[in-house]
């Protein structure tokens, strides 16, 4: 009896703590969500009940904000980054996983080590280099930067998945009559698909949210959504209602992606975690 009551109290405390943590985390999001549908005047009155308006979502796409361009920039940069990174990372991961390469460990560590360097340290050299190469304020430049950021991550993650495919399976396919490329296409890719998909979405999120490099390396044409948020300032102060509407536009694709990949993501993380 007492044990039962004890565990009931325990679970009650746990639920309260979880609710509290959720409250702390969700309040800003809820506030953004509400503010996005308020008028500029309403934002400064902490009213829970107000007449919602969709006007903010229209305004952000109009002059002088032109959020549409930033949305396009973000989408193109993130998509192109993923579409380039994943095939190359998959090839690299397969090679690391299946072939004995000279200096293999050193190369793997070197790839990982690029992640140890803080972004602020290299952003200025990047600036100088891009200025000389003419990549400043271009989407190509941003794609290159994002590739550098996501590739090590993608290689390591996909390698974990390919390591998990038994050698027997690949050898069976080879004896059955497949060339190495057919083995990769027919056996390795389908079996590693959840991992590759997870890595792809991870890379997309990283590229989508990337702030520091985009802030320094763009100023007009290639500005992405996170940087675009800084535009919502006016003489009357921060335009919170517009900021929030733009924030929703940034977050919604991430929410949808998260829902889609939840299943694969758990599978991906646990598979990588075993080894």
């Amino acid at each position: 009896m007492s044990a039962g009551r004890k565990s009931r109290i325990g679970s009650l405390v746990r639920i309260v703590l979880i609710l509290f943590a959720a409250f702390v985390m969700l309040v800003p999001i809820a506030w953004i969500f509400l503010a996005a549908f308020k008028t500029h005047v309403d934002v400064y009155q902490l009213k829970l009940f107000f007449t919602p308006t969709l006007g903010n979502f229209g305004t952000v796409f109009e002059a002088p904000f032109f959020l549409g361009v930033k949305l396009l920039n973000s989408t193109v940069v993130a998509l192109v980054t993923v579409l380039l990174a994943i095939p190359v990372a998959t090839m690299a991961a397969y090679s690391f996983s299946r072939f004995r390469l000279r200096g293999e460990t050193a190369m793997l560590v070197a790839i990982l080590a690029t992640q140890f360097v803080p972004a602020v340290v290299i952003v200025l050299p990047f600036f100088v280099m891009f200025r000389d190469l003419g990549f400043l304020d271009t989407r190509v430049g941003l794609v290159l930067v994002n590739l550098a950021i996501v590739m090590p991550f993608a290689i390591w993650m996909i390698k974990g998945f390919i390591d998990g495919i038994p050698m027997d399976t690949e050898e069976a396919a080879m004896v059955d009559g497949s060339s190495r490329l057919q083995v990769i296409r027919n056996i390795v890719l389908p079996m590693a698909a959840p991992g590759i998909l997870t890595a792809g979405i991870f890379c997309f999120i990283i590229a989508w949210n990337e702030f520091l490099f985009a802030l320094i390396l763009t100023n007009k044409h290639a500005v992405t959504l996170p940087i675009g948020l800084a535009l919502f300032k006016a003489e009357e102060g921060d335009l919170w209602n517009l900021l929030s509407a733009a924030g929703i536009i940034i977050m919604v694709p991430m929410f949808i992606l998260a829902l889609v990949i939840r299943k694969y993501f758990v599978q991906g993380m646990t598979m990588g975690a075993v080894r």
Partner: peptide
């Protein structure tokens, strides 16, 4: 291996988990 016209049965079977039994045998 593919050009030697041999078939091999592996200790751990080496089946293709993402294919049906029919597709495994048909591969």
């Amino acid at each position: 291996p593919k050009d030697r016209d041999v078939a091999m049965v592996f200790q751990n079977y080496g089946l293709y988990p993402h294919m049906s039994i029919f597709e495994n045998i048909a591969y």
